[in-house]
Design a protein around this nucleic acid. Structure first.
Lengths: 230, 230
DNA sequence: TGTACATCAGTGAACGCGCGTTCACTGATGTAC
DNA sequence: TGTACATCAGTGAACGCGCGTTCACTGATGTAC
């Protein structure tokens, strides 16, 4: 809501402070992308309006719309990856797995637009989707697969192929859960903790109660520095 | 198309062509929506071009773009629902569950655009998303939940709440699988049958081998009348 | 039987919109002489 | 110390595009008299 029609004609940044607007553009784009229901509809002109700047000004900092969004997505993906790495601070393998999954799901719930863009192929025109897909998919999946294997097969008795399939299934299950909740909010969704306990019980072959206990003891608190990047 | 034989003099009506274009429009829109990678970007003018008609002509048959798409989606959803109902022809509960899931996944793979529109909230501008969500979500989910309960809890020992949660988890797992495969084709996906056996083994708590056997014996063959509706 | 007319099925041009992008420009500010 | 000039940061107007939608129209074809 900054800058509407006749309001404050934006003060230019001082000489040397050229990168300031660049950061503001990334921040504005990140905010819009994260909150929009249809992230793929985000336009250069919307970003310019949100930043209180002429559309043409964006070209001083980014060659095109795609470059700006790539910047934003890299930022967001790094944020999620950091959070998931932090899950490894827990001591026991099962705790680490639970923490990882919780972080993933909570981040996705808190950043629907970002999630759809990073993992759902809902990319604004001009952004090469392959870039997004590559970054987001593989690394995260590898970490999750390893965490699941560590928690369910401590002696490493099963083959890599089995681990890999189990990891994929766990990830797709979380992906589906997150997507379905966002897209069909009217369905009778149980409380988050219950759903996560059920989900992880299935994939670890452990009783749901054991997972619930871990969920209750490790708060991690809502993963949303949101539009930080100060 | 039909319309009484040689009865009463009545209204002027029918110079033959009337409803023909209407059907052709629905057919063209269905084809585009089903095959497009970004179904939400489908426009009225694209449909008009595909049908070889002036954009304005569409308004003779539909009040606006949304009405046309609603028509298409209803058609597609009915197609999927029919296929899933046909799964009940199998004799044993587990067979019915397996058939249902197989139909769902194969239909989704074969109709990515339709799937995204019906279940993924990727709806062209002007279509009320709520209509889509309502129709597609609930009925299908209810059937799936019942099939899962019948296969895993024949004596009905567990509560409805437990059944409902299990059904939701199974559906979201399939939803995630289908979405993830479509959006990240570069990942190392195992063969379809293997994935489905793993998935259903998890959700039924049965050995994967038992599911595989069922998958091998009940062909059902690829669910794609596609653009039929002759 | 001929002919005026109503209806049908669809067209073509135009509207205003938001979009990405280009381009010549405008002021303010630092720097060289 | 003053002043000409280069640079910086960003603007405003315009371009052509595809879009949804409106509107007056155009032929063909059936029907009434």
């Amino acid at each position: 809501m900054s800058q509407s029609s006749g309001a404050a004609p934006r003060v230019r940044n001082a000489r040397g402070q050229g990168t300031q607007l660049r950061e503001e553009l990334v921040r504005s784009a990140a905010h819009l992308l994260g909150t929009l229901d249809q992230p793929e509809a985000l336009s250069l002109r919307q970003v310019a309006r949100a930043a209180g700047v002429a559309p043409a000004s964006i070209y001083d900092h980014f060659p095109d719309l795609g470059a700006l969004f790539e910047n934003v997505l890299e930022l967001r993906y790094a944020e999620l990856a950091d959070l998931m790495r932090a899950a490894d601070l827990a001591t026991r393998p099962l705790e680490r797995l639970v923490a990882r999954c919780r972080v993933y799901i909570e981040w996705a719930d808190a950043h629907p637009g970002d999630y759809r863009t990073l993992f759902g192929g809902r990319v604004p025109a001009g952004v090469p989707a392959s870039v997004v897909a590559h970054r987001s998919g593989t690394e995260l999946l590898r970490g999750l697969t390893a965490a699941l294997a560590a928690a369910t097969d401590p002696d490493n008795a099963l083959s890599d192929a089995v681990h890999s399939r189990a990891g994929l299934l766990l990830w797709t299950a979380m992906h589906g859960l997150v997507n379905a909740r966002a897209e069909h909010p009217n369905l009778p969704w149980p409380p988050d903790d219950l759903t996560m306990a059920d989900l992880l019980a299935l994939h670890t072959h452990l009783p749901a109660g054991q997972i619930s206990a871990l969920l209750a003891t490790s708060p991690v608190e809502a993963a949303s520095p949101s539009d930080g990047m100060r």
